[in-house]
């Protein structure tokens, strides 16, 4: 075998770049909602690395080479970024174990999994613990009254009674809005119930903008390609715009949809996971657009307040089909029957 020259880019470097680009969003999360996200990371990262190593040892592989690719670390960080900041520690660990063991290693490790591991972990937690998974904090960071590190640690470790927890926490703006609309209120009435922010739900807009900044960095560096984020954001915007024009009282504005919930995290960091996304240039556009439309449908008519995780997993299922139908036209393509092609030397 000829040792062909190489541009020296590595999988680890790509993953490292994504991890770096996550930082602005993580900082914004901890600024708005307190240090819970860092505590989760501190627990989940070792859990992820241990789980990955254990399974690799069971499979008779060297854990070191696989850990070096940083993919387990990235999965833990992505899941941590998606969890409510005061989720009990053992749920967070359970989520990351499901993500690494069930969604990734049982399929054969990095590159073999059909579903986004972080989103599988998230959805399992969301279905198993719906109450805890929708209990977010009010955006106290904005008025400078976040929980301290000690308080957060107390709650995450489970050393606080539920009463204080209920007093502390609240639903997300998306959740509140859903409830309001399902009770027959209009968007405008719903907004009155919220600490309404500048553009979307208070606090969430800043988090989304921070993830957007990290995402743009990835785009500039060429770590991810533009098709998935752009088509996802565009599809969500257009769908929201359509319904907003039809009935502004019932359906919220595109900007509200874009900057609330996990849209930017999803568009730039989750949906762009190359392993589980569509891999052709045109296919990525369909893949992203599918997620965008599904997010809107589930948010508006589905049973859950946010929908990025479900939408990504649903589109993961379609990725092979999309790839099949969106193969690029090759150099010198001629319309030939497959049987004629196979006669080629």
């Amino acid at each position: 075998m000829q040792a062909i020259p190489h541009n020296r880019n590595t999988t680890s470097r790509e993953m490292g770049m994504v991890i770096l680009a996550l930082l602005p969003g993580l900082v914004a999360l901890s600024w708005i909602f307190g240090p819970g996200v860092w505590l989760h990371i501190a627990i989940m990262v070792p859990a992820a690395l241990l789980a990955e190593s254990a399974i690799l040892l069971l499979r008779g592989r060297s854990p070191f080479t696989a850990l070096k690719d940083l993919s387990a670390l990235l999965t833990a960080l992505l899941l941590a970024a998606a969890l409510p900041p005061l989720l009990p520690w053992w749920m967070a660990v359970l989520g990351v174990l499901f993500a690494i063991i069930l969604a990734k290693q049982l399929y054969g490790g990095l590159g073999q999994n059909p579903f986004n591991p972080a989103m599988v972990g998230y959805v399992i937690l969301l279905i198993s613990f719906p109450l805890e998974m929708t209990r977010w904090l009010p955006p106290t960071g904005l008025d400078g009254t976040t929980l301290s590190m000690g308080q957060s640690l107390q709650i995450i470790l489970g050393n606080s009674d539920l009463l204080t927890l209920d007093a502390l926490t609240s639903a997300t703006p998306l959740d509140t809005m859903r409830t309001q609309i399902s009770q027959g209120h209009t968007i405008q009435e719903g907004l009155l119930q919220l600490d309404s922010g500048l553009l979307a739900g208070a606090g969430w807009e800043w988090i989304n903008l921070a993830f957007l900044a990290g995402g743009l960095l990835l785009l500039l560096r060429g770590t991810i390609s533009w098709q998935i984020p752009l088509s996802m954001i565009l599809a969500l915007t257009l769908t929201a715009l359509l319904f907003n024009i039809i009935d502004p009282a019932q359906f919220n504005t595109p900007l509200y949809h874009l900057l609330s919930g996990g849209i930017m995290l999803g568009a730039f960091f989750i949906a762009t996971d190359p392993v589980t996304a569509s891999t052709t240039p045109l296919g990525r556009i369909w893949f992203g657009a599918g997620i965008g439309v599904l997010v809107y449908i589930i948010r508006t008519w589905g049973g859950y307040p946010d929908a990025v995780a479900f939408s990504v997993l649903l589109m993961n299922m379609f990725a092979p089909l999309i790839d099949y139908f969106t193969q690029p036209s090759i150099y010198g393509a001629v319309k030939q029957k497959p049987s004629a092609r196979s006669k080629q030397p």
Binding site: E14, P274, V275, A277, T279, P328, I330
Partner: peptide, 21 residues
């Protein structure tokens, strides 16, 4: 290492093949 379908190969292919597939 394992293929992660990053599509760097299909972006570089002068024949527009899908090397990852």
């Amino acid at each position: 290492l394992n293929c992660i379908r990053c599509a760097a190969c299909s972006d570089a292919c002068p024949v527009s093949l899908l090397p990852q597939q």
